[in-house]
Design a protein around this nucleic acid. Sequence first.
RNA 1: GCCCAUGUGGCGGAAUUGGUAGACGCAGCAGACUCAAAAUCUGCCAUUCGCAAGGGUGUGAAGGUUCGAUUCCUUUCGUGGGCACCA
Length: 918
Amino acid sequence: FSRYKRLKGFNVLHPMGFDSFGLPAEQYALETGQHPAVTTEKNIETFKAQLDKIGFCYDWSREIRTSDPSYYKWTQTIFLKLFNSYFCNTCKQAKPITELIEKYQSRGGSSFTAEQWKAFSDKEQADILMKRRLAFSKFGEVNWCEALGTVLANDEVVNGVSERGGHPVIKKKMRQWYLRITAYADRLLQGLETVQFSDAMKEMQRNWIGKSEGAEMEFGIRDLELGINVYTTRPDTIFGVDFLVLAPEHSLVSQITTEAEKEKIDEYLTYVKSRSDRERQSEVKQITGCFTGAYATNPFNGKPIPVWIAEYVLAGYGTGAIMAVPCGDQRDFAFAKHFNISITNIIGEHYNGEEANSTKDATLQNSGFLDGMLMKDAIAVAINKIEELGIGKRKINYRMRDAGFSRQRYWGEPFPIVWEDEIAVPLSENELPLELPHAEKYGPGPEGEGPLANMEEWVNTEKGRRETSTMPGYAGSSWYFLRYMDPNNTQTFCDRKASDYWNQVDVYVGGTEHAVGHLLYSRMWTKVLYDLGYVGFDEPFKKLVNQGMIQGSSRFVYRVAWDFNNYPDNFEPSFLPNLFISSSIFEKCKKFDSDTIEKVKDIAVKLFEKSVDNFKEFSFLPDLSFYALRVDVNFVDGLELDISEFQKWKNGAYSNSQFILENGNIYSSRLGQVGVYICGAEVEKMSKSKYNTVNPDVLVDKYGADTFRMYEMFLGPVEQSKPWDTKGIEGVHRFLKKLWRLFYTDVNPATNAPGKQVWNDEKPTDAEFKILHKTIKKIEQDTENFSYNTAVAAFMIAVNEMADAKCFKKEILSQLLIILSPYAPHITEELWSLLGCEGSILDAAYPILEEKYLVEATKEYPVSINGKMRSSVNLPTEVTEEEARQAVLSTEAITKWLEGKEIKKFIFVKGRMINVVV
RNA sequence: GCCCAUGUGGCGGAAUUGGUAGACGCAGCAGACUCAAAAUCUGCCAUUCGCAAGGGUGUGAAGGUUCGAUUCCUUUCGUGGGCACCA
């Protein structure tokens, strides 16, 4: 696209860079036993060589790497700008925090006076300001794996246990950094109106932000001076509330739980701690919850309402508490049925007792002052009443939460923050970059802190202790498009003149998987920088094209583990059997084939016995569980695993593993071939973390870069995902060879010299111009629409037509080369010079479309009878309905279908077709 | 489970956005050239009935709107992406 636009005369900024910080780079380094700085450098060189080989004309003078100090200096600078800003709720934009401090000093805040502010300690002031900063720290939950002594990313947690070792993972509260993206929720929504993203993308972002209008109201707890705040979008159903549900983490849980229920509640809380948010919401069939013993009161009719806790209510959304209306909400309904809570029907016949009905069109019954009202009308009435009684208020709520910005990892940007007496003190901008110290080992620090916590010399400064977590992978990618505009500036991250000249990114190509991550973060950063006056636009990307993913075919091995809910105290990670079963055995186990399971269990017990000295202490072993683990496709041949390669993988992490092979034998490295281990397969995103990537070099070497490029374009629409498959690449290769033969006979394979010249200087005929201009029109349309696959097809047709017409004329061929050059840069450049044309084809003038060659005098109008195609008539392109009717009625091929039938209607779709209704 | 996308020949896909379904390519079959192979060229190629002319059926499934539906609506099934520490 950039080559095309360049030919069209645009000044195209077409850079490339490397988002080289983050978990995958760190893990790759760990697996290969090298420092991430080394592996990153090496991999970048490989990528650049490959990209150049394929013929992308990237402007490498603008290259950036997010892990380079000269780049992350500015990531840290922008972080400080976020830290030193707050969101002004009246002007709805970011302002320097100094303005807020001034305001507090002169006028005070909402809950304190100016005098009180001045009397606050430094720490108290810092805490108040922290609640307003755009980059702020507070306590939040992380995945904590006690056995590994580390915090895990969601990617590293599989089925609730650590991917490495299969250890239990629980949630742990830690001090974390966050970005206050929620402050921008409304502007992120409004901004969508101004950008060209697909409707699906906009919809995803809207849903993620999840704006809803409703009411927040308080339910008093019986016999206690406490109230539970509940957020609801359906205050009209207030008389249908049969119970309240709190998130298990809700701060009131411990206070309202009665003595009688305490034990059960504690047990339930332990259970929930081991569950991820996803699991908590998705397993609808398995309903869990626990009664607290407390009762709330319905403020409108005084009815006592039992208060429960349940995992399906999340602490992070709304107030962390819901009012449950079983007749109107399916999850509440299932919960009520499961725990035998009686259901109040407020919608009469709309509720059938079998399932909930979330309609807003029912007339309310059993609903006090709302009786007889349509539900959708009752919403406003109910909110007004709630506000009138002072028990709650109208509220707009967002589903989106603030973005977690700390990682307990090594390979990321260090925070330019020093903690002095529990106060976060920023470095000044001229102290940046705060370089990531070189570490030989980057294992976890104490208490779940990041690896940097182990580096005493670096951590401890004169003033205090440095922040030891690092920024997440998306930090550097939230603003890099700005750096491309001014990549070598040492004074600022991007001069305003540069960003004013280039302005927004005109076309941004990225996958939908970024919808609710990168594409929201970068929009937010741009808005902040706009508010603070550093850039002149508040949306970074004018137009977004979602390229589909080339998917990979992943391979799986199946691991056996003990299904301990919690490991016994004396259980050590090394006790795990590390046993893998072949695909068909896994399938049988999944179907609870008892013979197979017994056999597997026998082997697992034997292995367990061998590795555990005090085996007798584990008199009771729980059932086995089985889970799939991805392996690198590069050591799976078809579906067959190369076991010795697998055992060497990840620095020998699986070196002591055992295998039950497809035929039931146990693998032995000494006995040699006793059977094969068959892997499972699945098509999914091609990704380093899924170990299913394939390398383009082989194909480029075999067919050349042009064939590779065009084949990839020809595969299908850019926005569509598809598994990588080289079937069909021959066709594109043949096309390029055929193109060559319009100019020269075949290349002499011995000398590699072009064959005999075929092209000539003759004057083209109108028919030949027609082929050319038809192609120009089609290619322009398709390229502008990113419909590359149909463009390639059009080239194939054009070349076939020219070959058939024996059109070997330079005037036509040179024009064809220009429009083809963005698609196949190498061969077109070569032929361009062989034709004796001046300079590089990249600097040629794009041909101007001449419509006169495309005008048709007559046109074939398809004729259908009752919508069914029966024939066609040839008519002038400009024809009246009456003329068309006459032509149709005098065409024998058509009248034979109309014989004896009465014509009811004659439909003439101008320029398209004719339909006769009989 | 929730949100988004998607489903068309043996395969990748096309279809003027509601108007001749299967462009283009792969694979396959038949033929030409060749001692032979490769390369190249020509023809056939959804399915079914028919010698043919010509019919019938057909865009995951079931309904609906329309003169006319791959396209719009409803329900349903399958697949892919996302679900907050991969980015």
